[in-house]
Design a protein around this nucleic acid. Sequence first.
DNA 1: CTTATAAATGTTATATTATTACATAGTGTT
DNA 2: AACACTATGTAATAATATAACATTTATAAG
Lengths: 131, 131
Amino acid sequence: MHKEHTLTKNQQIIFDIIDKSPEPLKAYSILFNVQKKGIKAPLQVYRALDKLVEIGKIHKIESRNAFIACQNSSCQVAKATAFSICEMCEKVTEISSTGLSKYLTNFKDKEGMKYSKYNLEFFGLCKKCRT
Amino acid sequence: MHKEHTLTKNQQIIFDIIDKSPEPLKAYSILFNVQKKGIKAPLQVYRALDKLVEIGKIHKIESRNAFIACQNSSCQVAKATAFSICEMCEKVTEISSTGLSKYLTNFKDKEGMKYSKYNLEFFGLCKKCRT
DNA sequence: CTTATAAATGTTATATTATTACATAGTGTT
DNA sequence: AACACTATGTAATAATATAACATTTATAAG
């Protein structure tokens, strides 16, 4: 079993903001939002973000430089992530498909190499934006 | 059939540097390398990069903010990309697996949504770094 | 409980990555 | 020539991220 991570003060503050947000948040937008709570410097935000990513509480959307809370309840480690991104409204959703994650986790390249981690980002138009 | 894109002067200079490099290049490292050729400003580099990505001659490795020449001969459009990245030596290789690209191109999420584009990055240790 | 160690914090400065805004020049039509 | 379109040049600045160092807090070992 995994050890439950108890978040520190800064980590908790920053996680809460990301978790409550309906959309991915950028580091400096987070910073702006927590300045009233005493977090004044970028580094304080980035350190919390790094830790939260490391323990799998949040994920980074690489193509957007933004962070989203993990949707898969109790995802402890960030080693197999997949997202859909609407190119119109920028809505991002974490994909949890057993088939997909099995396929990718077991994927071997031409030389038989298996990978320990992956990140996949799908792009298209969401339901709303297609209508 | 696709129209062959004739690269402009700046685009050609920047593509050549990326194409010759054994590793992904970052925008400012490219800038540094082309200053002798008269390209002086970041924007000149970014504009060429944008265009080259758009026409599929190069790809951006999102997790590294770096650019690599397309390995799939005559890949004209950047809409289905997959890479392996060594977390030790940072070697990046474009994966060309028909199985993988078929699987992902046809992937539908829970709501039946199909996507027009994807980018996948695998992480692990390359052959050399595992020994 | 105290000492040692690791993890987290606070703060300043700076590095790296990317875009806005505006002026100019080339290219290809009609 | 007149038009639209794409690319270029240049300066300034915005947005994203890390280095370096001092201090504090949490955790574990004796």
